[in-house]
């Protein structure tokens, strides 16, 4: 970092830090969904990235329809598309659970392969429907541009909006899982499935809605994703490995851990990118994570459980 003054370094860190916030938001939303599903049923959802892509394509679709038929609605459509992304991805998740996942509980390695198969099918579906080229929704004007905080630091508005969305979702998930009666039932099922069933909790229903919820949040991540990059059929695959690392590194059961881990991974990636090439930043980040996980396989924030 030889050639930079302290002021410049500060500005670089701040700028890359704000750029990293968008990545952080997408990773966190993806990881929340993945962690909920993994924590609840021990299923690794390899198709999680494709559910994100489902949300992104939904946003694109609504944007195109709005632009064609009700252009006056353009400034507001994005808010609705977030909800639609959640619903579309959630519904797909619900169906996937019903058709596929529920037959494979207690066979985690098999679900891993089956959901990989699902991801291939979803990718090819996107390619057949939307074409192989990447697409982007037309973003409303208020999402574009940046707010100049100092003469060296610009704060991108889309990043702030996505961050707000992420904070809102995280709080909602927290409330749902830890304060609502539904969350209580989910946690009861996670801890002792047989007992939960015996006291009258419909564990199958809980599983299905949990899976749908996880996928729905991935859909919201997809809507957020459209503000930072364009969407292609294989977009999901690019994020799935990073998301796994966020979940594993954070310790699958800890909400705080997931947030902290998404933040550190996104920021490390983003800030390193400025100094070394993007690919080497990724190598460096992932390699550091793998080495840490080799010494501390339970993740950084795993809770202690009596076994």
């Amino acid at each position: 970092m030889g050639g930079y003054s302290y002021d410049e370094l500060g500005a670089i860190f701040a700028m890359q830090g704000f750029a990293g916030i968008s990545l952080f938001s997408v990773l966190l939303l993806m990881a929340l969904g993945l962690a909920i599903i993994f924590g609840q049923m021990g299923v690794i959802n390899m198709a999680h990235g494709e559910f994100m892509a489902a949300g992104a394509y939904t946003t694109y679709l609504i944007s195109s329809l709005t632009e064609t038929y009700i252009p006056a609605f353009m400034p507001y459509y994005f808010v609705f598309s977030i909800a639609a992304a959640f619903l579309v991805a959630g519904t797909l998740g619900y169906l996937a659970e019903f058709i596929l996942i529920r037959h494979l509980y207690k066979r985690p390695l098999d679900t891993l392969l089956a959901t990989w198969g699902l991801s291939l099918i979803m990718q090819q579906s996107y390619r057949s429907i939307f074409g192989a080229r990447e697409v982007s929704p037309t973003l409303p004007d208020w999402l574009m541009g940046a707010y100049p905080a100092t003469d060296m630091i610009d704060i991108p508005i889309n990043g702030m909006f996505v961050l707000g969305l992420t904070i809102f979702t995280t709080l909602a998930v927290f409330y749902l899982m830890f304060k609502s009666s539904w969350g209580l039932r989910v946690r009861a099922t996670t801890q002792n499935r047989v007992m939960a069933g015996a006291v009258g909790i419909n564990t199958k229903k809980i599983d299905r809605y949990t899976f749908a919820l996880g996928c729905g949040i991935a859909g919201m991540a997809g809507a957020a994703f459209t503000t930072i990059a364009s969407t292609g059929p294989t977009t999901g695959t690019l994020y799935i490995v990073d998301t796994f690392m966020v979940v594993v590194f954070g310790g699958a059961a800890s909400l705080f851990g997931t947030i902290a881990s998404a933040f550190s991974i996104a920021q490390a990636q983003s800030i390193l990118e400025f100094f070394i090439s993007g690919s080497m930043a990724k190598v460096f980040t992932l390699l550091t994570l793998v080495i840490i996980l080799m010494f501390k396989p339970e993740g950084l924030f795993a809770s202690k459980v009596r076994r």
Binding site: H103, L104, D110, A114, G117, L118, L120, Q124
Partner: peptide, 10 residues
Amino acid sequence: MGGLFIAVVM
């Protein structure tokens, strides 16, 4: 291929 992944485990 996707179908094969699913069929082979199910």
